[in-house]
Design a protein around this nucleic acid. Structure first.
Lengths: 123, 123
DNA sequence: CTAAATGCAAACTATTTGCAACGAT
DNA sequence: ATCGTTGCAAATAGTTTGCATTTAG
């Protein structure tokens, strides 16, 4: 692992947020001011291809990166916020219902997050 | 509904595939050769905002559009193919496990599709 | 006649690529 | 000396926007 790969991996896996490349870039730049975007993209892709980080795509939002450990997501379509959640029984249910092996699954639950619900109330 | 909106809606909802904007453009052009990309984007977004079609984002693939009727997807990461599948009990499971209301959910199951498995065998 | 929709081009965002210079074996 | 990595700039893909023109009610 190169210093960037290591740093980017650390950033993604220790962040509680789900960071965009842009945000990762900002973080890496604090420590290595000379880094450029392409390097972030290259490394993030390398990590992703190696299966070391997870990529999360939500419609109309830039991709975000996350630790690989299995969990699901709550997505607020208002503000884009992503929240981790662990839901039980999904994998078993899939195994039971699908007649075939699967590699993984990705479950996003859309909801209005507390912050947005609050904002709504105020108006 | 304008003629394009109508035509695009028809294309999306009657196609068995999950079409990209590019593909929708190709279809619309058969009937209306003068149409431009921007018009497809404008209309597809309009339909999406109106809740009349569904947008599907998968990492590293252009967005695709689908009918709104609730179902889940099998995704082949090799070739990108999307297949409809209906899985039972997910919504109930979510309602039970989440302490809050949700708007919708999106479940993608990754698997190697029969075509890709076949190709693999040949090599 | 008016308001909305379209064609067209330009702008923009997200991402990738080619290549020369650099750095670590 | 070699090979992978980086910085940099340019290229590309996907998408949006501004505006003059056209179209439909």
């Amino acid at each position: 692992m190169t210093k960037y790969e290591e740093e980017i991996y650390r950033i993604i896996t220790t962040s509680k947020d789900h960071l965009t490349v842009e945000q990762i870039y900002g973080e890496v730049k604090k420590k290595y001011p000379k880094v450029v975007m392409a390097t972030i993209y290259n490394n993030v892709n390398k990590l992703w291809r190696a299966g070391l980080v997870r990529k999360i795509s939500v419609e109309n939002m830039p991709d975000r990166y996350d630790r690989i450990i299995k969990h699901d997501h709550l997505v607020c379509p208002r503000c884009g916020r992503l929240t981790d959640v662990s839901l039980d029984g999904i994998a078993d249910s899939l195994r039971g219902q699908l007649g075939q092996e699967f590699l993984a699954y990705d479950l996003k639950v859309f909801y209005i997050c507390p912050e947005c619900r609050e904002q709504e109330r105020e108006q």
